[in-house]
Design a protein around this nucleic acid. Structure first.
Lengths: 194, 194
DNA sequence: CTTGCAACATACCATGCGGTCGGTTATTAT
DNA sequence: ATAATAACCGACCGCATGGTATGTTGCAAG
């Protein structure tokens, strides 16, 4: 990686962290500049505007990190158990910043979906990708599942609950509530089986 | 209500709407002043700062509106069915602004819980009140429910899912996803019974 | 009638923001 | 070697923000 690409990556990772911590609007470009020890000219050489930087963070940092996580959780023999262990390990490995700051994508959705169409469409696309991921995984064990399940609906339900759980843990500022919701979610997921 | 109290109420309702639409930080005091056709002096006569205005909106507008809604949904013979009809009617009566802007309390939680302790504690307190409301209602039909249910956990699960559903509908900008999650949630709730 | 305070109005301030622009250095192609 | 361009610097700009200080009006008690 040459120097230019390196500074671009530095900007992206710093911006990703700042946006995660403070949201997009409240993220100050000057803070990013300080963290990267670069000038404003450097930033605007790589990104045409703040919002384009935001899009790049979304597409190049958040999205792959997110989808890879879910993909690996679902790429097991039994995706139902895969999801449950995924969720449970989240409650254990959850760092303090994640308890406090929540999921970056969920945050961005809350903040920007109804304000900026570019963000909204990106979020929407990602949610559909994620939903497809889950549906595909569940369909592979369709024979073990109860009859009459609306798998897409089930998938959205799971994701919605998970997002709601992170939001809940943000206000309570402890893992306990999150763990409770996750425990109940695992009960629900396992009950999908016959 | 005298004139002073009337202007105070005007400020509160205008602020509540603006905060609902744009979030707390992005809400501009000058917009509120224009909507109410008052001066900045008037606002700062009634509220010492922007954040105190935010607290007042939370306590005097959002909280009672919210708790009353849930209370009336749960104050029926069968709270399980009460919740289901409550949720279902939400999907039908949901105005465009609610689809786009989401739940005011959920929004505030997302935006302010990890930034301002005053907001966080107020949100937390309200969530605990709401949880107690649901738990109390479910306990009254405990005999009809399955054994071994952790009612507090169940209650948090329901609230988390509902919040996640509104967030989902924000990014998709249509009711369909919301309705799907709600439909699945109703299945879950009804399955709490024996 | 006047005194006093509540209920406003208006002008102003410091600050931080995203963004621009002319200039400079480093790299690369010819 | 030189020309061209990428990569970067840093001063500056307009603007909107939350907040303050001073001034004005109107009502109500004494």
């Amino acid at each position: 990686m040459n120097d230019a690409e390196q500074t671009r990556q530095n900007i992206l990772t710093a911006a990703a962290d700042e946006i995660h911590q403070h949201g997009f609007k409240a993220t100050s470009l000057s803070v990013i500049l300080n963290r990267c020890e670069i000038s404003k000219g450097a930033l605007y050489h790589h990104f045409t505007s703040k919002i384009e930087l935001g899009y790049a963070v979304f597409e190049e940092i958040y999205t792959p990190m997110f989808l890879d996580l879910w993909q690996s959780a679902l790429s097991v023999e039994d995706p139902v158990e895969g999801l449950c262990t995924f969720f449970t390990s989240m409650t254990e490995q959850m760092s303090c910043s994640e308890v406090v700051c929540g999921c970056p994508l969920n945050n961005l959705c809350e903040e920007m979906a109804n304000v900026d169409e570019g963000f909204r469409l990106r979020i929407l696309s990602m949610q559909e990708q994620l939903n497809q991921l889950i549906v595909d995984a569940l369909e592979q064990i369709n024979d073990d599942l109860r009859d009459g399940l609306a798998l897409s609906q089930v998938s959205y339900f799971i994701v919605a609950t998970l997002n709601g759980a992170t939001t809940l843990s943000k206000s309570s500022r402890n893992k306990e509530l999150f763990q409770q919701v996750i425990a109940e979610l695992c009960l629900y997921i396992r009950a999908l089986k016959k």
